[in-house]
Design a binder for these strands. Structure first.
Lengths: 336, 336
DNA sequence: GCCGCATGTGAGAGCGCTTTCATGGTGAGA
DNA sequence: TCTCACCATGAAAGCGCTCTCACATGCGGC
């Protein structure tokens, strides 16, 4: 370990500037009550020594760490295969935290050890707040942390009661627009490939489909996938067995929609002539499928940003709404 | 701010266990020189109070932070669109750091402010080490940090001289295998879409193409992209103008290859009959293109893991090789 | 011209931990 | 039985910072 240069401390700056540590501290932290000549003398000393405050020492007394944990509780493989959902969340969160000069600590709970690690780390208040992305089922940790007084915000309306503020997108509204589009373009046998029913995104999108179909004389035809391409391909096959006459399908995620398209193609169905397909996500890649995918856009980057913004507000002690719901939008391309 | 429960300190544990702070510290840190009965008494007290050490206080005295920065210097849009490169790196790094019980601090340098932030943060030794992913051009920061004695490892052989250890994949070997495959399958006019020539990945892959072609009587036909789908589409168009007779193209990234395929299709060329296409990356998505993409697989997850492992070694004070090069492998599918 | 006040600055405590150094108790060897 | 060495334990210093509180100075009002 090279020892290199000892880093200068407040003490050193104070000595060089001929003032006390307290005064240097005030200048460094932008306190208004320091006379201008002294202020600039201190600034010069800071500059000259290349002084940078020691974060550990500061945290020790302020009880703040200026860092935020982002917890991704998904199974690792899904988080980082070719599903851009989490990367976009990370990106959005990162943008806001950068602007607020906070660090982003990334944590995964893909293993039991990982989960315990996160639990230990966050309850020990090693971070000023915790963000949870896409909780599966009923994760007790967010509520638990909130009860301990740790600022927490999650993505997605939590299943079960929960006092934790959340940010979500308007699943139901988006899906209804999609199904309505299929109805309006003359489709009569509209199936759906739903997402996992232990996730709010999966549940709400299926609910939206049912709600929009309800009242029309169309019956619902449902298969369930897990948001992966493979599950979409399998589910599509199953739907066609259930109802070979179906002429449209709303798929609860773009990746599953890609899988469904593959299956349809293999079975010789034309899209959209024989079967119209609508997805949900609007991933970049969906502009390049053949045919380009009609889908419901959800603002994932913005979801991440809003998530961070809400947490920063909680940390600042501001009042925050219990829920923020971002709009979704149907993007019509060639597949429906 | 809810104050909730005060967190117990070493002091509290010591009092409960009837020993001194020093002894508790020794037990918590696994020092061997504590008698068994005392050790277990302390353990019980820790358990009972739910004691978790305060990281700031510990860092202050040990000068370690047990956290590692991962710096992604790419323009933000490229990092997190549908290019799974960075997500995979993050994932791999995260796996290794988790195992070593280190925190992962994610930083972006997509803006000037971001770059300065990273510079400040890392030189201030707020982290035990720094990982740089995919440096563009000649970034002085890694070398600078290394000179200050901060442990650093980067991905990709640095341009210019540099004493910083790096981890990279065998670009040239993979590309040569790809081009050789095209030669062996009877192609005579083999073009390439190269990556940006200010990145080692771009440079090396073009060099591999040239090296393999050299000695055969085939001439090189080159267009340059920036690793995005759009640039691949554009470059393909340009190549076909340059040489309408070309019968194969090696594309330096899968995303660019997808763009190239789109263009070829638009212009009515059959793949691989009229033009064979080989990519580089082996992203998940490339198994689902039409036709499935023949490509060079690079082990990105492993790259991230190795990156973290090397850094942990440097931090531990171990000797590390100046370079680790991971193998690449040609994956033959239907596009060539 | 004196008192009181506002204002800027410094002294010092203390955040929670690790680690050095001193100390007291134990057992072995003489 | 006494001495010495050894080892487990505790006392206390100190990591670098913030922040309270006391103090000094300069000013206006009487």
């Amino acid at each position: 370990m090279s020892q290199a240069h000892e880093r200068p401390t407040l003490e050193a700056v104070a000595r060089l500037a001929g003032v006390s540590r307290a005064t240097v501290s005030r200048v460094v932290n932008g306190s208004p009550k320091v006379a201008e000549p002294i202020r600039s003398a201190v600034r010069r000393a800071v500059e000259e020594l290349g002084y940078i405050p020691n974060a550990a020492a500061r945290s020790l007394v302020t009880q703040r760490t200026d860092s935020i944990a982002l917890v991704l509780p998904e199974s690792a493989s899904r988080v980082f295969s070719d599903d851009p959902f989490f990367p976009s969340i990370i990106h959005g969160v990162s943008q806001e935290l950068d602007a607020a000069d906070k660090q982003l600590v990334l944590m995964m709970t893909n293993t039991v050890a990982g989960y315990e690690r996160v639990e230990r780390y966050t309850t020990a208040r090693h971070v000023d707040g915790v963000l949870f992305a896409s909780t599966h089922g009923v994760d007790p940790l967010p509520g638990q942390l909130a009860r301990l007084g740790v600022p927490v915000v999650v993505t997605g309306r939590p299943l079960g009661r929960s006092a934790v503020p959340y940010v979500d997108v308007d699943h139901v509204g988006g899906v209804r627009a999609a199904v309505r589009h299929l109805l309006e373009t003359g489709h009569s046998r509209i199936a759906t490939i739903a997402g996992p029913q232990d996730m709010v995104a999966g549940i709400d999108r299926l609910a939206g489909y049912r709600a929009e179909l309800h009242g029309s004389d169309r019956r619902s035809i449902v298969a369930v996938g897990d948001f992966t391409r493979e599950s979409g391909a399998t589910a599509m096959r199953q739907l066609l067995e259930d109802d070979p006459q179906l002429d449209a399908v709303f798929v609860a995620s773009d990746l599953m929609a890609h899988g469904a398209i593959t299956t349809l193609r293999e079975l010789g169905r034309r899209i959209p002539e024989d079967v119209a397909v609508v997805g949900f996500d609007d991933f970049d890649i969906s502009r390049y499928t053949d045919p380009p995918l009609t889908t419901v856009r959800q603002p994932i980057l913005e979801l991440g940003r809003e998530l961070a913004r809400q947490l920063l507000r909680v940390i600042a002690g501001d009042e925050v709404p219990p829920a923020v719901v971002l709009p979704t939008e149907l993007v019509v391309r060639a597949s429906a």
